[in-house]
């Protein structure tokens, strides 16, 4: 180690790897992963979220799973919690997931066409 800058670079990189253990609050992306969700293809959707969020180095976002939300016909379903607000996305594909990360999580614009409201109209 020849300089403080070098240490700082390692620290920045390494912090990404451990942020899960220290961060509280922020945005929660909850993927429905009961049998219905998995059968409808929730796993590739979740992996797309994981990859995209990591690629963009988004801080303060955690991805968790949940059981059956009850609307099995709309799976794969994902709910995004931000403060008091909750957005429910339905019938997602991996492509949709990447779009949600870019639009909703980064730019703060809800991807209307994927929400439960748009689908049920």
């Amino acid at each position: 180690m020849k300089s403080i800058a070098e240490l700082e670079a390692i620290r920045k990189r390494a912090q990404e790897g451990v942020k899960l253990r220290s961060e509280k609050g922020g945005v929660r992306v909850v993927v429905g992963m009961a049998t219905c969700g998995i059968a409808a293809g929730a796993r590739p959707v979740m992996m797309a979220f994981v990859e995209e969020i990591n690629k963009r180095e988004l801080k303060n976002v955690v991805i968790t799973q949940t059981g059956c939300i009850g609307a099995c016909r709309l799976e794969p379903m994902v709910e995004v919690y931000q403060g008091e607000e909750k957005i429910t996305y339905v019938k997602l594909t991996a492509e949709d997931a990447r779009k949600i990360v870019a639009e909703h999580l980064v730019n703060g614009r809800v991807v209307k066409e994927c929400t439960i409201g748009a689908y049920e109209k």
């Binding site: 240490l7 390494a14 451990v18």
Partner: peptide, 13 residues
């Protein structure tokens, strides 16, 4: 790396 992520070796620096 994990030690450094939690501010390790900063004090030494």
């Amino acid at each position: 790396e994990e030690y450094i992520a939690f501010d390790g070796y900063q004090a030494l620096g």
